[in-house]
Design a protein around this nucleic acid. Structure first.
Length: 169
DNA sequence: TTAGTGATATCC
DNA sequence: GATATCACTAAA
């Protein structure tokens, strides 16, 4: 069953762990639909979270994070990798869930976007109403937490916040 | 461990 | 205009 907008409008710390086990669906340009099960997510929460892109303020790039929960936020890092986030929370509250990994072999944040052909072209979609990419309810496996990775630039306490959610195997 | 890659923000 | 900085991956 497709996940609706109400779910994404909750706080990111509630949404992120529940998205572990959910299913991402993607319709490719040629019409084929592929799916994958999410195994790892990370929460980025608001302007005060120094690891969140929105901590630097509202800019053209982070504008998407201020949208209403349910929108996609896709952006390019290191010049070659697309990362996919789902915006959460109400309008004007910049929160998002990074989809870090799915079932092997798509166990990296830029690996599955490559396999699913997700790029900047999918930025700003409203998932509950999109037929290009959307999410479906899945299993709810046991989840463990860990600090987020790749955010050494953020100061404490944000660097150590246990806002990474990983499916127990 | 390192190269590869380009958009963005920030500083002239 | 220029530069520094990245929510990473693959190869070695």
């Amino acid at each position: 069953m497709k996940i609706d907008g109400d779910f994404f409008r909750q706080d990111v710390l509630k949404v992120a762990p529940q998205l572990v086990g959910a299913v991402i669906c993607r319709r490719l340009p040629d019409g084929t639909v592929i799916r994958g099960c999410v195994t790892e997510t990370e929460a980025y929460r608001g302007q005060e979270d120094l690891a969140c892109h929105a901590s630097k303020g509202r800019t053209p790039r982070t504008e998407m994070l201020y949208r209403e929960g349910g929108h996609s936020y896709v952006y390019l890092v290191y010049g070659l990798h697309w990362l996919f986030n789902v915006v959460t929370g109400p309008k004007d509250v910049p929160q998002g869930v990074l989809i870090r990994a799915m079932d092997k072999p798509l166990d990296g944040p830029a690996k599955w976007t490559k396999a699913f052909q997700v790029t900047g072209g999918q930025n700003g979609l409203y998932l509950p109403a999109s037929d290009e990419i959307w999410m479906e309810e899945g299993a709810h496996p046991a989840v463990r937490t860990a600090p987020r990775v790749g955010i050494d630039y953020a100061a404490e306490p944000w660097k150590s916040m246990p806002w990474r959610f990983i499916a127990q195997k």
